[in-house]
């Protein structure tokens, strides 16, 4: 697979998935592991896992896949391919700016906003059912909220502080 093919495959699959990250994983796993054998399953799963333990968007794990195939150039090609699609929002933004005062557009925007908030709670619920499986996760979760709301340390400090606390507990406590 050439560098250009890496760029096209990752970019195309990322856009085809249309907001469904799991679909990208399935498509890429089929193409890179089962079809072509460019990566073995362990490499692929490791790259995917990195998306969860590194900051930023989840789809940054695609840089790991690009790096495994073509080194730094592959990582950069993967990143470029998933960023370009974001520019499709600009024409939509232009249309939105022209029509934002129209009654049905305002209704649509309110509907989009309200359903987006619902989606955030749904994601929170899903992450919660996966993550809150013992004492340490609850300590980390509550510490994050405490640092943000009570200590007013900001989200980043709250998150990192609670994570460091959790890692410390994980090494100390056998749970």
């Amino acid at each position: 697979m050439s560098l250009f093919q890496v760029f096209i495959v990752i970019g195309t699959y990322n856009m085809l998935a249309f907001g469904n990250g799991s679909a990208v994983v399935a498509l890429l796993q089929h193409r890179l592991v089962e079809d072509s054998g460019i990566l073995n399953l362990n490499q692929f799963l490791y790259a995917y896992a990195l998306g969860r333990v590194t900051p930023g968007q989840n789809n940054l794990y695609l840089a790991s896949i690009g790096f495994m195939i073509y080194g730094w150039l592959g990582a950069l090609a993967a990143m470029l391919s998933i960023q370009i699609g974001g520019y499709l929002v600009l024409p939509v933004l232009k249309v939105y700016d022209r029509m934002r005062e129209v009654g049905w557009v305002q209704g649509a925007i309110r509907g989009l906003g309200a359903s987006s908030v619902g989606l955030m709670f749904a994601v929170g619920f899903r992450v919660g059912t996966e993550a809150m499986t013992g004492l340490i996760p609850w300590v980390v979760f509550l510490s994050t909220l405490a640092l943000i709301f009570l200590a007013r340390r900001g989200m980043l400090v709250g998150m990192l502080g609670a994570t460091v606390l959790g890692l410390g507990l994980k090494f100390i406590l056998p749970v």
């Binding site: 896992a49 990195l50 969860r52 333990v53 906003g113 309200a114 987006s116 908030v117 955030m120 709670f121 994601v123 929170g124 992450v127 919660g128 996966e130 993550a131 809150m132 340490i136 996760p137 609850w138 980390v140 979760f141 510490s143 994050t144 909220l145 943000i148 709301f149 989200m155 709250g158 998150m159 990192l160 609670a162 994570t163 959790g166 890692l167 994980k170 090494f171």
Partner: peptide, 28 residues
């Protein structure tokens, strides 16, 4: 190591998600 990081980052990330949803959704 990755399992450890995953197990402690997810709950912290959940905190951020909950705060974010509450702040953005407060008017609703």
């Amino acid at each position: 190591v990755l399992d450890y990081i995953d197990a402690t980052l997810l709950p912290a990330a959940l905190g951020i998600i909950v705060v974010s949803a509450l702040r953005l959704g407060r008017p609703l």
